[in-house]
Simulated assay, not measured.
Amino acid sequence: MASFGLKVIRGTFGVAEHVAPRLTGRAAFELFCRTPHEKSLSEGERRAIDRAADFMTQARHHRLKTRTGCVMVHEFRPEPGRAAAGTVLVIHGWRSRTEYMRTLIEAYRDAGYKVVSLDLPGHGQSQGRRLTLVSAVDAARVAGEWFGPFAAIVGHSFGGAVAANAVAGSIRNIPRLAAGRLVLIAAPSSLPAIFADFSRMLNVGSRSQAAMADRVERIAGRPFTGDRQLASTPLPTLVIHAPDDREVSAEHARLYTRAGDHVRLYWADGLGHRRILADRGVAERAVGFVAGRLEPSLQ
């Protein structure tokens, strides 16, 4: 059952949609950018973090300064004596953190890659309580200055949107991030998709959602349309998506493939939006694509 506070917010947004949608859109955008407090973690999230405690001790931890604060980057190196095949940047999604990317990180490290995993602003061990697409891309930029160029960038969900914008250089005054390949897992291809679940929860109407997207466009300098960005950035790209994803529709994966022949699609049947991260078959597919051992065909 929704809390009394949530019911009040939903009622307010419902009325304001018809009175002042632009003002409502700005207010909703600010709420959206507010990241969850660590005390709000669910029991399942806490257990996942606890299970990854030993795994996290294997990393070297670097606190890097961005334009809006400091972010934590976790560096996982290959086994001693093994030459690195290159460096892979891993970017998690909204309300996520490096611990949840463990299966992918281990798969790349076992294949001889050095893995740099970024905790986005307001997430994991990074500072702050606010996250925007711009601050996220800026954090990726800083990681690139310290650890790049990257053999590949791997992003899940919102992290995939961050990766696509970073390599396309689509954010005003933030240079393009150098990478050899791109892997997008359950990634949205537009801002409305990012806002969709949040808007449904708070009863934010369509006109207010449009105002939210306009707000981001004014900050970023251009709209986020992933297929167009990849079309202008012919980087070998693997899109991994589950047809049953209820958070980011499979249609977004299909949109990415329209960017050109440099984009390949792999359907991860039955893995939803979050289980996909723990699937070893998905991890093997992602590693194989970056290593050039396989080139999955469009499905």
Rank of each mutant, 00 (worst) to 15 (best):
V116M: 00
F195N: 04
I240G: 00
V15W: 08
L131T: 06
E75T: 11
R258D: 04
Q229T: 06
A278H: 10
H74G: 02
M101S: 00
G11D: 11
W267T: 06
G160Y: 08
A242D: 03
Y113G: 01
E295S: 15
V287W: 01
I219W: 13
L131M: 07
K39S: 15
A186F: 05
A152R: 00
A268Q: 05
A2W: 13
H61C: 10
A163H: 07
T257S: 11
A213V: 15
V115I: 01
T68H: 13
I171K: 03
A231S: 06
S189C: 12
A139M: 03
M201A: 13
T68G: 11
F224N: 04
D50S: 15
A231Q: 06
V162D: 02
L255H: 09
A20G: 10
L120H: 12
D279Y: 08
G44K: 05
Q125M: 13
Q209H: 11
H18M: 13
A220Q: 15
V137P: 11
L265G: 08
A196W: 10
V116K: 01
V90P: 12
G69A: 04
A286V: 09
L202V: 08
V73N: 07
H74S: 10
A59F: 04
P121I: 00
R285G: 03
T12D: 08
P296Y: 00
F198D: 01
R293W: 15
R102D: 06
R246M: 08
S117W: 05
E45T: 09
G270S: 10
V19N: 07
V142M: 04
A48R: 14
L271W: 12
T57M: 02
D261M: 10
V204G: 00
A2T: 12
S40R: 08
D110N: 15
F158A: 01
R22Y: 14
S126A: 00
A291V: 09
P223A: 04
S126P: 11
R280V: 14
N203I: 09
C70E: 15
A278S: 13
A253R: 03
W94M: 02
V239D: 09
A253C: 10
G160W: 07
Y266C: 14
P192H: 05
A259Q: 04
F32C: 02
A196R: 12
A210D: 11
A27G: 06
S126Y: 02
P21Q: 02
G11C: 13
